[in-house]
Design a protein around this nucleic acid. Sequence first.
DNA 1: TTTAAAAAGGGGTAAATCCCCCTTTTTTTA
DNA 2: TAAAAAAAGGGGGATTTACCCCTTTTTAAA
Lengths: 212, 212
Amino acid sequence: MKYSVVIVEDHILLSQALSGLVNGFAKFKILYICKNGKELLTRFKDPKNIPDIVLMDINMPIMNGIETTAALKEQYPQVKVLALSVEEDENTILKMLRAGAKGYLLKDTEKSILENALIQVQETGFYHTKDVTNLLLGSLNPKEENNVVLKDREVEFIKHACTEKTYKEIANDMCLSPKTIEGYRDSIFEKLNLKNRTGLVIYAIKSKLFVP
Amino acid sequence: MKYSVVIVEDHILLSQALSGLVNGFAKFKILYICKNGKELLTRFKDPKNIPDIVLMDINMPIMNGIETTAALKEQYPQVKVLALSVEEDENTILKMLRAGAKGYLLKDTEKSILENALIQVQETGFYHTKDVTNLLLGSLNPKEENNVVLKDREVEFIKHACTEKTYKEIANDMCLSPKTIEGYRDSIFEKLNLKNRTGLVIYAIKSKLFVP
DNA sequence: TTTAAAAAGGGGTAAATCCCCCTTTTTTTA
DNA sequence: TAAAAAAAGGGGGATTTACCCCTTTTTAAA
């Protein structure tokens, strides 16, 4: 009996190609393919559709890999999630692992490594490369953390700040006084340790608050 | 006799998976896989390694799809290039087509469409979806074009401008007078129709001059 | 229900940015 | 080689931004 695998990935060509790859492995077969997390959760309502392993992309529209993994951990803890991504950003990897992923694979890997990872996840419950293990160790000592909490209003302001508008114009758009806006800016600068608006824009883009 | 296809793609998992897909098509077989354009050109030195079709990713390190396609058009015009990308940015598509690609496929497509595209490219010399055709038609009337040429010095300045440095500091780092830097800025603003540094940062990131 | 905190708004100032318009030197190119 | 274009440098002023420190109102918590 083969273990069942579901692929959640928005790029159809990749998911179909991956599907072929996995079906070629001795111990695994693809149950079905989803384009995003929402679709997956809908499918799961039928117990027949619950696989042993979910191969999950991180960047997806509608419901991304992190949210979806967290939801699975909550509702279907027996399902093992193997994250699959081009993303090598430390924070994203950590978020994914915290959300409950059992392993993290870069898309830039050999198919034999994928097979190995699937076997390990199924048999031992987790799979981690040396890199990710080091990352985990490094994250144990909390050091300087970005546990900064941005308020909704501030996040909205940041999005406006990523345009050519002046603060006055932003204030106008958000129906606030320019001075309030400057207050937002100042407190954000302080929280995030930024020097100026350029730094804010870079931060917003890095943290995906704003997509250029 | 099957037509030969070479895949140029930096994500190994995707290229291996694609490879399996294409080998499953009746009329095509994969000759080999490359991780970037440079590797491809090296391989081409042996005439045995020259395929009918190259399936080319656009975003690659070392030598990207556009440069590579241009080089192939120059040196091996008989090889047909089919571009493959997640990129849906109009300008990139146009650049790729101008460089000589015979078709443009999104990674977000069915495998049957890939097979179809390969067949059409091989038999008729090109494959274009309705979207791309419309884009081509649209680009005929030159309208407002971004044929702006940025000088080396200006590009270097832009990279510095994507940090928290002031212009004075940038001038210092580039061993130029602050006034020269302001001159760069002003001429860039004019050429690119920007209003302020924020706009410049967004432009730099969009056009990949700066990667956050 | 008092107390404390966020949230919203503000004043003043120094620095940075933007936007003109201008000269000298170097490099192209016709 | 003369003319033109590009690169480097600059002056002055208006605007915007950044950074203090301060008040009122609203919201949450003890």
